[in-house]
């Protein structure tokens, strides 16, 4: 186990360095730089040069990369070229809003997906299963942008029940209800897609297990259907579910770019898009490295969970 962990840690480091290298050089090779934001804002070339010099952007790329890496090891993600503030600060400012949205959506998605997935597998081929399949097909294929706009039109415009943007009403005292009201639509959009996705995995996972001999054995023992389901089927179907959920965890951090845009949610996604479009190198680098780290960590977590759910899996 210990050597397994060390091995994984080394792998993680390699992945992180690789990701940062690729991002760093790709960003710098891509056309554009942070000064090309707006042609109406005419910059004096001399001032631009001085600006770059002050930020050491005039040094050779490998030197820039090296000092970025050294700073990173000290826990310093650098200063945003657009905001002129530490990247870490920019992230911590936006993360709560994003986690509120993505976390709630994940919970809601699982809340619906687990029972519906189980139901449609257990009732395979029935009317109910067909309805759930229809719903998941819609959920998977409806683009978030489209669904979001549709919901806004319906609930914010025509019915005027729910707000169309942001996470609270400005100018009134903050209240729990107010947050919930603002959360409903974006959470519906985000969780529809992922719930549909999870339902498919859960259903497929369960169906595979249901066909196994040991489930027949369990029934032949005279166990109640619920016992068969919860003790024998579910635990064996957990692995694919753990896989998809852990794969989606890193995206709790990056937020949902489209949905954040549609609902004007002040989160990470919008900021990441802006940072990328405006070539804010330190911000984009930080996001990529953090996401890579999260992906690796979540994979590790998933592997450890596999071993928990399935005694046949052992790590050395």
């Amino acid at each position: 186990m210990r050597s397994f962990l060390t091995k994984r840690m080394i792998q993680t480091l390699v992945v992180l360095v690789g990701v940062s290298l690729i991002t760093f050089f790709m960003m710098n090779l891509a056309p554009g730089d942070p000064f090309m934001m707006d042609p109406e804002m005419r910059m004096n070339p001399e001032a631009v040069a001085r600006w770059k010099e002050l930020r050491q952007l005039d040094r050779p790329l490998h030197e820039q990369y090296y000092s970025w890496l050294v700073n990173l090891l000290k826990g310093d993600f650098g200063i945003s070229l657009i905001h002129n503030r530490p990247v870490l600060e920019l992230i911590t400012e936006r993360l709560p809003a994003t986690l509120l949205l993505t976390g709630t959506s994940l919970l809601v998605a699982l809340l619906f997906a687990v029972p519906l997935g189980i139901l449609s597998a257990v009732k395979q081929g029935t009317f109910l299963d067909k309805w759930i399949s229809f719903f998941t097909l819609c959920g998977v294929s409806l683009p978030n942008f489209w669904l979001g706009m549709l919901l806004i039109l319906l609930f914010a415009y025509h019915l005027n029940w729910l707000p169309a943007s942001s996470l609270r009403t400005v100018g009134v005292a903050a209240s729990f209800y107010d947050y919930i009201k603002h959360l409903i639509l974006p959470v519906v959009v985000l969780s529809t897609g992922s719930a549909a996705y999870y339902i498919r995995y859960i259903r497929a996972g369960i169906l595979e297990v249901i066909g196994q001999d040991y489930i027949l054995t369990a029934r032949a023992k005279g166990l109640k259907e619920s016992t068969v389901l919860f003790r024998h089927i579910l635990r064996n179907s957990m692995i694919p579910v753990v896989t998809v959920v852990s794969l989606s965890l890193p995206f709790l951090f990056t937020g949902a770019m489209v949905t954040e845009y549609v609902f004007s949610w002040p989160g990470m996604g919008r900021w990441i898009i802006m940072a990328t479009l405006s070539r804010d190198y330190p911000s984009v680098l930080a996001v990529n490295v953090i996401v890579a780290a999260l992906v690796v960590l979540c994979n590790l977590g998933a592997d450890l969970l596999y071993a928990y759910f399935d005694p046949r899996i052992k790590y050395r």
């Binding site: 001999d213 040991y214 054995t217 064996n236």
Partner: peptide, 8 residues
Amino acid sequence: TSLNPVLN
């Protein structure tokens, strides 16, 4: 196959 792999 007739024994559940995840239960002792």
